[in-house]
Amino acid sequence: MTDKEILEKGKQVIKLESEAIADLYNFLDDEFIKAVKIISQTKGRVIITGLGKSGLIARKIVATFNSTGTAAVYLHPTDALHGDLGMVRSEDVLILISKSGNTEELVNLMLMLKRMNVTLIGMLGEENSKIGRECDIFLNVYVKEEACPHDLAPTSSSTAALVMGDALAITLLELKGFTTDDFAFLHPGGSLGKRLSLKISEIMYKGKNVPIVNEDTSLKDAILEMTSKRLGVTSVVDKNGNLTGVLTDGDLRRLLEKQSDIKNLVAKNAMSKNPKTIKAEFLASFALQQMENFKITSLVVVDDDNKPVGIIHLHDLIEIGLQRR
């Protein structure tokens, strides 16, 4: 194949699969509504099954369901016929994924499930199939053709099933009122969990580790405070302990560019007034966003009386793995 042919083939595959997804839009009907309502009201679990590539898609849909608040498990159809059927209860909802709707293992499993009075949802490419004729709800994932040139390898069909699963999961998410707090609770690990749940109070410098000087502190002592706390910044407060400014390495450099004799200067002479601040109960991700927006490397954490209670530094946010969206 020439370079041009390689590129065209890639584009053709994407075009075929995008068309398969677009067709799903017109396939959604009252059956989809029924499926969403039954799943949302079930007192059991959602069990999803499929064989081969459909099995892989089933596992992905299970993962999406679980991460968005709908309890789901994967059931291998062959294992189910050799003992794992014991995990199924009559109050469960079972989704069978099959392009043909005639997959032998799924048909045999379906017959056993019918005896157990389990609600069956068929995510199928053919309604007039063995599973299609017996399931309680039919979700149409028919595709005109696979992206495979031989129309054999599941490509468009597996993509269509995956998207239908996403449609169910996200609709259920909104129906249940699943919030970002709920999402954070289910994703405590990694940068995603940190972005959604980690609060400034959990990672900020506090107590004796917070650099603080008075407005009339000598510049020499202010520099010592900055150096000893190793943050390159100190908060500056008035006689009542209220924040009035911050003194940074940058402020010192700009001051020295103007005058070299600083022995008679105090913190108030060099500080930046009205600094950006943040509250301890805010998310750490918001602190990162503020630092990026204002092109600063630290934020003073203040209480309701505008008294400094902590400080948070950009390097610490990056070190714990917090990233921009």
Rank of each mutant, 00 (worst) to 15 (best):
G50S: 09
F286Q: 10
L186H: 15
R59W: 07
R89S: 15
L81I: 13
A280P: 03
R115N: 12
G245P: 07
K194S: 05
Q289S: 15
L124W: 07
K130D: 12
K307P: 04
L283D: 00
F138P: 06
R253F: 10
N117E: 15
P275R: 03
A153H: 09
T64Y: 01
A20E: 05
T70F: 02
G50P: 01
V46S: 05
M116Q: 14
H313K: 09
S157R: 04
M110V: 06
L94T: 04
V302N: 00
K194M: 13
G10L: 07
A22H: 12
G207E: 10
L256R: 10
K268C: 06
Y205W: 11
A153G: 10
K220G: 01
I39Q: 05
I312Q: 06
K263R: 14
P77T: 09
K37P: 03
N140M: 09
L255T: 13
L113R: 02
I262D: 04
S218F: 13
P211Y: 08
P188M: 11
I170C: 08
L192P: 07
S235E: 06
L16C: 06
H187Q: 15
E19Y: 09
T42C: 10
R254T: 10
K239E: 15
I61W: 02
R195M: 11
K34R: 15
Q290H: 06
S197D: 09
H313T: 04
P308S: 09
L192M: 14
I137A: 00
P154K: 00
R254V: 08
G83V: 11
V13L: 11
V309H: 00
N66D: 10
D221G: 00
V88W: 01
T70V: 06
M110E: 15
D216P: 03
Q259F: 04
A287F: 04
K53E: 05
G310A: 09
T234H: 03
L283P: 02
L288C: 08
V309Q: 12
K273C: 04
M226S: 07
I318H: 11
L124C: 09
V236S: 04
F178W: 11
L299V: 07
E257L: 13
L75W: 04
G55P: 03
M112S: 13
D151T: 10
I47Q: 02
R45D: 10
L243W: 04
I95F: 03
D182P: 07
F65D: 01
N269P: 02
T2V: 01
I296C: 09
K114G: 12
E202Q: 14
T227S: 15
T42V: 08
S235W: 01
M87R: 13
F138T: 02
L124D: 06
I97D: 03
S158P: 08
M123T: 01
V46T: 09
E292W: 04
S228D: 15
N117S: 15
I320K: 06
G310L: 03
M226P: 04
A184N: 08
G50V: 01
S54R: 00
P308I: 06
T70S: 14
L175P: 00
V88E: 00
V213P: 05
D151G: 07
I212E: 08
S54P: 00
I95R: 01
T68C: 07
K99G: 01
S197W: 00
G189F: 10
E146F: 05
M110Q: 14
K34F: 03
G250P: 04
